[in-house]
Amino acid sequence: MRIRTAVWLAALLLLLGVGAAVNIPGSFLGDGSAASGGKAGSAPGEFLPDFKVKCLDGSVFTLSEQRGKTVVINLWATWCLPCVAELPHFDRLLAEHGDTTAVLALHSDLVTEDVEAWLAGRDYHLPFAVAEDRVLTDMLGGGDVLPRTVVISPEGEVLCNAAGSVTYEDLLRITGNGS
């Protein structure tokens, strides 16, 4: 009986400990996500806070340095099939309209394989970056639902921020590059 009681007591302590640790963002098991989701500034009509992120090719993408161009940010992941399927559209957008449009392909901080190795052998010319943590993807509107496309006007205003697949024609229309 004593062993049984001790086991249940230990189990209860484990449950309370895990429960407390995972629910407190700053704790050693917390995931750092802000209570509000950290999305302020990411909705259409708002202005995203400036950010910079190091790309896999060594360059640094800074949002404020893209003023004057339409900025398209694609949140994607190697484990997300629709994301993988639509990457060529962003590659083509940059190739055909790079003079008026800046593009960033930002991989989710949830990495299940080497992104650089995954990209090797695939002929993309986009700037690719991998988010270090959830903070940047949360700021862009949330990286839990992928793919996500954020389009920002040359003046810095968010024009579109939506989850879901896009076609090349969608991108042309949203960025104003369509005929």
Binding site: V18, N23, D31, D144
Partner: peptide, 18 residues
């Protein structure tokens, strides 16, 4: 399923335990 905060916020837990 101890991440009660997830129900409140509508998002998944992505801490080290995951």
């Amino acid at each position: 399923n101890a991440h009660v905060r997830g129900w409140v916020m509508g998002r998944i837990y992505r801490g080290p335990l995951k």
